[in-house]
């Protein structure tokens, strides 16, 4: 494999990691807001708090890793995306900032306030919507370069069916991923009430998520035919994704093996995300930028890869410890251990 491909594979893997952990977080925010509005809050509150409190910061770092990493491996992305995305990027930052800090304020500091919960719930859906536009833009046609200036075409972006399709796909996926994880977590916590409610949410959002996936797939053919055809060539990855989805939904429906069901959801998104990404190559921004002409110099590439491997050696044991203490520790999950 060339350095270029190693680089993009590393980054894409971290983006996938962010997709999963952030979806759980975003969806949890929405559910916690929604259940509060419908007075079912007492059912889900503990589950959501107990899982999120120790990990929210880790979630954020996945994103930071991605956007710092991409400038390291592909410095030209800073130029193209940086110039084009000033406004949507700033909006995403503001939403992320409000969400992160108000989560901490509500959890560690003050008593619960309706405003905090609202912010937390609303940003949970708005952030995936705004972040997903980056993928939309990468398909080409939304950004132009003229007289050496890069510009985002807002009319094109907001008027495009494809772009709205991606936004919807992002939102329903967030809800589905989140609900299936929280179902599993509630079952570990032996919390029957929460389990029942969350399982229902998981089932509600399962079909919309796959439906939107299929719709966006076909909308893409109108947007970027080359990418679409590459995806058709990689049809088997999407078949794996569909099969994993079927297994996951079946298990949740049958009230069995929630853990395996969540792993299947992860497989579903893994296959689809990597299928999408692999078919997108070599373009980072169609048609202006490929992974080859935007790549950093070779010395830097090697240094970054070495740093990455060293970093992983440090991270994997630490993440394992975190999961052991908070995800797989039955007493903690069941709420028998004291917090701060």
């Amino acid at each position: 494999m060339s350095y270029e491909v190693v680089g993009i594979a590393v980054l894409w893997t971290f983006l996938y990691g962010y997709l999963i952990v952030a979806s759980v977080d975003f969806g949890a925010g929405f559910f916690s807001y929604y259940t509060k509005r419908t007075n079912k809050n007492h059912i889900t509150h503990n589950i959501i708090q107990r899982y999120l409190s120790p990990v929210w910061e880790v979630t954020n770092v996945f994103l930071v890793f991605f956007f710092i990493g991409i400038v390291g491996f592909f410095p030209s992305t800073a130029y193209y995306y940086g110039t084009a995305l000033l406004v949507p990027g700033s909006v995403a930052i503001i939403l992320l900032a409000l969400r992160g800090s108000y989560y901490a304020f509500a959890t560690y500091g003050a008593k619960d306030s309706p405003l905090y919960t609202f912010l937390y719930g609303a940003t949970g859906l708005l952030i995936p919507a705004s972040l997903s536009t980056v993928l939309t833009i990468s398909e080409g046609g939304f950004v132009i370069k003229e007289n050496g200036n890069v510009r985002l075409l807002y009319g094109e972006l907001f008027g495009s069916l494809y772009s709205w399709g991606v936004v919807l796909l992002a939102i329903v996926s967030v809800l589905f991923i989140s609900a299936s994880f929280l179902t599993y977590y509630a079952s570990r916590a032996k919390d029957e009430g929460a389990l029942k409610l969350l399982r229902k949410y998981a089932l509600i959002w399962s079909f919309p998520s796959i439906l939107m996936g299929i719709i966006v797939f076909f909308l893409l053919s109108k947007r970027n035919l080359e990418h679409y055809q590459n995806m058709v060539d990689l049809w088997w990855m999407f078949a794996v994704s569909l099969a994993a989805f079927a297994i996951a939904t079946y298990l949740i429906w049958k009230k069995r093996n929630y853990g395996l069901a969540f792993i299947m959801v992860m497989v579903q998104y893994f296959a689809a995300f990597f299928g999408y990404g692999a078919a997108h190559l070599p373009y980072l921004l169609y048609p202006y930028l490929t992974i080859y002409d935007g790549f950093t110099n070779e010395t830097m590439a090697i240094a970054l890869i070495i740093a990455f491997i060293a970093g992983l050696l440090l991270l994997i044991p630490s993440l394992y410890l975190l999961m052991r203490l908070f995800l797989f520790d039955a007493d903690y999950v069941e709420g028998k251990k004291e917090a701060m």
Binding site: S53, V58, P75, L315, M340
Partner: peptide, 22 residues
């Protein structure tokens, strides 16, 4: 780009243990 990239690992490391510590 190298130290910026390494910084994210430092953040990761800190964030994980902060979660555990608290």
């Amino acid at each position: 780009g190298l130290p910026m990239f390494m910084e994210t690992f430092a953040f990761f490391f800190e964030a994980i243990f902060l979660g555990i510590y608290l």
